[in-house]
Write a protein that binds this DNA or RNA. Structure first.
Lengths: 206, 206
DNA sequence: CTCGTAAATGAACATTGTTCAAGAAGAATC
DNA sequence: GATTCTTCTTGAACAATGTTCATTTACGAG
């Protein structure tokens, strides 16, 4: 048998278990929160040893970060699926998609934003970049709505708008400290976007 | 000697150490982040035993929550110190005060918002109420600026506005994922408040 | 001074992240 | 197919850290 095939057999198994471990860790985080994630629980659930988890992810943070990475990916995918035909509708769509994702995956999103590295190890560059990219998705529609503004200005505006939306949603979804009642969150968020756009001089058309 | 005096001697010592422990824990959180807080370190720094920390705060969460409680108190004090003469200036002042506090006590504020209770124990009611109160401080000036709006509406608006400000600041201050460059944060935040107010129909008057 | 109550202590324990030497499994070579 | 070499897997042992509690100590009351 040739080398490629031989290697792929081992690798397939390895990848399979890696996927399984990630899936299990994600389920733990999603259902019980990041704090409830334990190496032993993951290993047990995957019917493998503790050491194998370490072989695969280096350390515990490695596992968490892998889950977080996939969370940003999923979020980005969802945000990018928002139709880009009408910029105003797109902005609303982005805010709404973010809210939808945050509602369905509250603990996963919290894990992404609240997880702190052990000691003072730096936060992984790639995740950082991915979050920034996600947050930059409001840029394009805002440019279309504000063609006369300085592009640098719009870039800042878009990140700020997304940060604001993030704040409203993340606080609004906390069962504790209910900044905005959840049932109203959706319409209020739309209202917020409208208000802010109005302040920027964008007039509702259609 | 009478009872009051006798008791107060013991109580004074007790209170003194309690204060010391809180102070030490706060310094740990403030300088190295919540994750770096260890019972043993606190006990060592206070030159007392581990058990004494438990006597005083019940468990580790108890200590953290005590620090967090004082953090909300400090934040509220600072927010309430903002002059209430002119509502528009007050709103800017509140946003700016929040930014100032968040800059100076980033880790303490993070501890307040990111700390999760052990197991599924409920978040303390009183802290929750205090945070809500702090977030409600934008209500009064907004009512003055929007006298014709439904008060319920304004209540929601104010909490949403504060949540938005919180989001902009908390993401903006993260060294990692710099949603808005820190040096610009201050003026951008002011701009955000203006923009949003403009969207609400408030026109700048001097 | 003696007693009783309350507080302090820290060794021992429980939980959980981490390491690593030994063994198992798989690939390469003959 | 046997041998050898590499890689992965395992789980016991270790380390760090939150928690408990029997014992000791300190302090006020009578």
């Amino acid at each position: 048998m040739n080398i490629v095939q031989e290697e792929s057999r081992r690798d397939r198994k390895k990848l399979q278990r890696r996927t399984l471990l990630i899936e299990i860790a994600r389920r733990f985080i999603a259902t019980k929160g990041l704090r409830s994630l334990k190496v032993r629980d993951v290993a047990d659930a995957a019917k493998c040893s503790i050491g194998s988890v370490y072989n695969e992810f280096g350390d515990f943070d490695g596992l968490i970060l892998t889950v977080n990475r996939e969370t940003v990916e999923a979020l980005t995918t969802r945000l990018k699926a928002v139709p880009a035909d009408d910029p105003l509708r797109q902005l609303h769509g982005l805010a709404d998609a973010y809210l939808g994702f945050a509602s369905e995956h509250a603990n996963l999103l919290r894990s992404l934003f609240e997880h702190r590295m052990e000691d003072d190890r730096p936060f992984p560059e790639d995740i950082l970049a991915m979050v920034m990219d996600a947050f930059a998705l409001m840029h394009a529609p805002l440019v279309r709505l504000l063609p006369d503004r300085d592009p640098n200005d719009v870039a800042l505006l878009s990140r700020m708008m997304f940060s604001a939306v993030h704040g409203i949603i993340s606080l609004g979804l906390e069962e504790r400290m209910v900044a905005v009642p959840p049932e109203m969150l959706r319409e209020r968020l739309a209202q917020f976007v409208d208000t802010h756009l109005a302040g920027l001089g964008v007039t509702r058309s259609a």
